[in-house]
Simulated scan of single mutants.
Amino acid sequence: MTLRIAVLDDYAGIARDYADWPGEDRIEVFRDTISDPDALVARLLPHNVICVMRERTPLPATILERLPNLRLIVTSGARNLSIDTAAAARLGITVCGTESRGSATAELTMTLMLALSRRIVPEANSASAGGWQTGMGRDLSGLTLGIVGYGRIGAMVARLARVFGMRILAWSRSLTPEKAAALDVDHAASLTELMAGADIVSVHLVLSEETRGLIGAAEFAAMRPGALFLNTSRGPVIQVPALLDGLRNGRPAGAALDVHDIEPLPQDAPQIDRDLIDSGRLLLTPHLGYVSEQTFRLFYTQMAEDIAAWKAGAPIRVIGAGAQSTPKA
């Protein structure tokens, strides 16, 4: 059986080179993201297999129900909340995932932390324009890093931050004082306490109805003078208007956002504020957290493995209840 396989949202154009895809199948790689439902359905309609990169293209029930040829979805990562796995199971569509490397996001977090703290972007811009030093940076050593959401990636960030001599303060709904002590981190009794007690706050939460809009005006207002804020988790966890207002009023003093409510980021997005960006108070990056050569080789290699296993009638890394359908002649 020859499959039609769609590989979506390959922004960098590397999907074909990073894995040994089934040679007998027809593979189409798309480098753009389509947000219009009708246009997305028209693109995907002929395909039996869809490979998605994280949440770049959501696949809700309203889309899946319009794709009668679809038999298999393969997502990068072991979880993708933008895929309606219940609807997929009902429609006889198998959903499989891959392993992931949290190190890429943790390393980017430290990169953004250093860039903000040492004013790398505005100072580099000054030097390239013929100027010289324009401000004063700050060491990480001796500062308190507040980690919101102390899961796998949050713990990786904590390990890296300790190398720089930082104290770790952590908060999550599931983190108790006893667990914090066992993990050798200081425990914040509330999110507000963490925001008030940290020199730098870094968010590492899964997006859910509980975390959507979790950090807003009250939380930013509680931050210390000079404190910095980083979000490399999911855009909707924070209230962007509240963050921008906070930056204009000095709390936080600076922020780095790698994730955004709408991605790719529209050019009329409110966070593209030239005054904040040019002053070095706001650093925007295009969701680079998991974008590294090693991570994407892992993703695409295991996507190809998932397809081969499904074709052989023995799906691997199945996500959700998923009907483990096999290819139909």
Rank of each mutant, 00 (worst) to 15 (best):
A312F: 02
A227H: 02
L143A: 15
P68L: 02
R317H: 10
T94Q: 10
A218H: 11
R43L: 15
P225E: 15
A309E: 09
E107H: 14
Q324T: 13
A269S: 10
A217E: 15
I316S: 14
V148K: 15
P60E: 03
L64M: 10
V201C: 12
L298W: 02
T105S: 14
T75L: 00
A198L: 05
G154M: 14
L67H: 09
A129W: 01
Q271K: 01
A78N: 11
S128T: 12
N80M: 00
V121Y: 01
P327G: 05
A12F: 11
D10C: 03
N125D: 15
N48H: 14
A217G: 08
L91F: 13
S174F: 02
A129C: 07
D184F: 00
A198E: 05
S126D: 03
A106H: 04
A217S: 14
D84Q: 15
G149C: 05
T295N: 15
T33E: 03
P327L: 07
L169G: 05
L243G: 06
I238V: 11
E263L: 11
D261W: 07
H47R: 03
G130P: 06
I14L: 15
S292C: 10
F229E: 06
G246L: 02
A180E: 08
M223P: 03
P58N: 00
G250K: 10
L214M: 15
L45V: 00
E178K: 13
A6S: 09
S82A: 15
G77E: 02
V52C: 02
I215T: 05
L276S: 10
L191H: 04
I14F: 12
I27S: 08
A180L: 13
R248W: 08
S76N: 13
R251G: 10
Q239M: 11
M110S: 07
I215V: 13
I50F: 05
A39C: 01
L160F: 07
Y11M: 11
L64W: 04
D199T: 08
K311Y: 05
S174R: 14
H287M: 08
S279F: 07
C96Q: 15
L81T: 08
D17M: 06
G77C: 01
P22K: 09
I14Y: 11
A189V: 07
K179S: 13
A129E: 10
G135T: 03
I307R: 04
W310I: 06
A170R: 12
D20R: 15
Q324C: 13
E24I: 01
L8P: 02
Y18R: 12
I200V: 13
A222F: 00
T85G: 10
L205S: 07
D245L: 04
I168G: 03
G216Y: 07
I27N: 05
G92V: 00
V29K: 04
A88V: 06
W171N: 10
S141N: 11
T144S: 14
A6Q: 13
S190Q: 06
V318W: 11
L230H: 02
Y18W: 12
